[in-house]
Design a protein around this nucleic acid. Structure first.
Length: 586
RNA sequence: GGCCCGGUAGUUCAGCUGGUUAGAACGCUAGCCUGUCACGCUAGAGGCCGAGGGUUCGAGUCCCUUCCGGGUCGCCA
């Protein structure tokens, strides 16, 4: 028997025809003289029927069928009687009256239900991933992922990009995430690193004259996992020559727009909103703001800098700030216990606590108002737009902590109040990131993005006088509070590159040792260039409305970076270790 | 590395202040059933209560340790 159709790839025109379909026995309904099997393949489900009155031998054979048996059936597609049509099934108007059945494979009872939206523990699903991936929602996610990858290839190809592969075995580079290392058999004591991204190679490709490069690239970072972070993940990586920030942004908005249009039927408005880094921090306390709701931060430092309330004035005297957000209606809504829980919540982010004022009809409930001058209180209430029923939440500390604490508190309150509209798709670009940030542990400036990121022309002079103020030609694209991708215009001037290296404490020798090949390449005529990389997994996660990146990766790893299906990583043969000149220290 | 949540039939869960033989639903098995599609009815099988130690006359329940899964802080140029 040869398959002629997929189970659900049928139309009214197939009625009356003889066809052969193959798939898994999804559900069996044995009524005695008649047996219905829902046959499932990647396309969907088709009901097939065995009736003893038509062929008792065949009916008898069908009695053996159990869940997840793989079947081949030949039969005639017929219209169902009006009253037996199943409106819940795309193929519900028809059924296949079987003439021939082959059991291609028997199956043990599966440990998980092969159904949409099961609530089975994820560990069980991952151990039996081959069964989990049979479920329609997982198959939809994989199909969605394929379609986005296909659009990426089409879109960038149409815009003159070339897909070029870069090595997976490469040189370890300092800074950034921890590398995955691969020992060299040939070179005793030496190691390859798996790429954290193809960054250096794509810049070299620009030097080589490949104008526009793109790649769907596997990247590796040996860091702890999160719901949206895996040790190996996929980037849509690209680089362009002879461009400025606005060119890169426009090109990639085009890609996103096309994905949402073709895959989800959602028309996005372009250009996307743009926020500078500073504005994003001031208003939302984060460089990846979720703008689906308001609840913006308010800076109260000016009002309370000379306040008698030392918690506030001291924070400002030490160079920090006092900021607040107005949780509309929460004063009336939240019990004291819930407010205290918010105070505990901000401590996660390093805040020492959360001051608050609950605004009542004709009074204020708070433990801090007695330390504030009446005029200060009034100006605060006015600035945050307080009305009866509101809860004003304050954090006073260094800017870093205030932003972090209030930025997360803003999300927490939005979740509690159900302020987030799941149907919104709020894209935005965050631009003008700081070029450098100070590393307190290492006591030096480090690159925030990477050391090849170009500073903004007008800020170059600040490199010597006020490095923290230098803005970069860097940009992130953010969707609903998730960083989807980012990139920058790179430095193509050798002098400037040298200056940046020295600014971040790289000696000439170190720079040469680590990035010598790139610096060498830059000597021979380097086009201005810049690029961007999207996190493909995160993009798919949001498009699929999945809650974890694991739901859009066929074979993901769990929190301790292992694979529950294969058992990787695992010990290896002593012989293998010996060849690699590696001894395991107990 | 820190903090929080969870681990009881194949699956999802219940199991009170410690007290007889650890339950339910779904799934599974068998029998019956000719229009079901959450098929129905009847019967049945199925448990190292994650593991180890402790307290107790007695532990699924309390304590300690440990393993596993999830979330998160640190980390993630």
């Amino acid at each position: 028997m040869k398959r002629t159709h997929r189970c659900a790839d049928l139309t009214a025109e197939h009625v009356g025809k003889e066809l052969v379909v193959m798939g898994w026995a999804h559900k069996r309904r044995d009524l005695g003289g008649v047996i219905f099997i829902d046959l499932r393949d990647i396309s969907g489900i088709l009901q097939v029927v065995f009736r003893s009155e038509l062929d008792s031998a065949l009916h008898h054979k069908a009695e053996q069928i159990r869940s997840e048996y793989v079947l081949a059936v030949r039969g005639t597609l017929v219209n169902r009687d009006e009253e037996t049509i199943n409106p819940n099934l795309p193929t519900g108007k028809w059924e296949l009256v079987v003439k021939e059945l082959r059991i291609l494979s028997r199956a043990e009872t599966p440990p998980i239900l092969i159904e949409e939206g099961i609530d089975t523990n994820e560990a069980v699903r991952l151990k039996y991933r081959f069964l989990d991936l049979r479920r329609p929602d997982m198959q939809r996610n994989m199909i969605l992922r394929h379609r986005v990858a296909k659009i990426a290839r089409d879109y960038y190809d149409e815009n003159g990009f070339l897909e070029i592969e870069t090595p997976v075995l490469m040189k370890s580079t300092p800074e950034g995430a921890r590398d995955y290392l691969v020992p060299s058999r040939v070179h005793t004591g030496k190691f390859f690193a798996l790429p954290q991204s193809p960054q250096l190679f794509k810049q070299i490709l620009m030097v080589s004259g490949f104008d526009r490069y793109f790649q769907i690239a596997k990247c590796f970072r040996d860091e702890d996992l999160r719901a949206d972070r895996q040790p190996e993940f996929t980037q849509i990586d690209l680089e362009m020559s002879f461009v400025e920030v606005s060119d890169v942004i426009a090109m990639n908005e085009g890609f996103i727009k096309r994905c949402f249009d073709e895959v989800l039927g959602i028309q996005l408005q372009t250009p996307f909103q743009q926020l500078t880094y500073n504005e994003a921090m001031e208003r939302y306390g984060t460089d990846k703001p979720d703008t689906r709701f308001g609840l913006e931060l308010v800076d109260l430092s000016d009002i309370v800098k000379n306040s008698g309330f030392k918690v506030f004035s001291d924070a400002i005297a030490r160079g920090g700030s006092v900021r607040a957000l107005n949780a509309k209606g929460c004063g009336a809504k939240f019990a004291r216990r819930e407010i205290d829980a918010l105070g505990e919540f901000v401590k996660i982010y390093g805040a020492k606590g959360m001051a608050w004022i609950s605004v009542e009809e004709n009074s204020l409930k708070s433990v801090i108002t007695k330390f504030l001058a009446e005029e200060e209180t009034n100006r605060i209430l006015e600035k945050v737009g307080a009305e009866a029923g509101d809860l004003i939440c304050f954090v006073a500390d260094t800017d870093d902590i205030v932003f972090d604490a209030l930025g997360h508190l803003r999300l927490e309150i939005a979740r509690k109040l159900n302020l987030i509209d799941d149907n919104k798709m709020n894209f935005l670009w965050v631009t003008e990131f700081p070029l450098l940030e100070y590393d307190g542990d290492e006591k030096r400036w480090v690159a925030k993005h990477h050391p090849f990121t170009s500073p903004m022309d007008e800020d170059i002079d600040l490199l010597d006088t006020d490095p923290g103020k230098v803005r970069a030609k860097a940009y992130d694209v953010v969707l609903n509070g998730v960083e989807l991708g980012g990139g920058s215009i790179r430095i193509h001037d050798q002098e400037l590159q040298r200056k940046i290296f020295s600014r971040i404490g790289f000696s000439e020798e170190e720079a040469k040792d680590r990035f010598g090949f790139l610096l060498e390449a830059f000597k021979y005529g380097t086009p201005p260039h810049g690029g961007l990389a999207f996190g493909l997994d995160r993009l798919i996660m949001l498009m699929a409305k999945a809650s974890s990146i694991r739901d859009v990766i066929a074979f993901p790893k769990v929190q301790n970076s292992s694979c529950l299906m294969t058992g990787a990583p695992d010990v290896v043969d002593v012989k293998q270790l010996k060849e690699l000149h590696i001894a395991i220290k107990e």
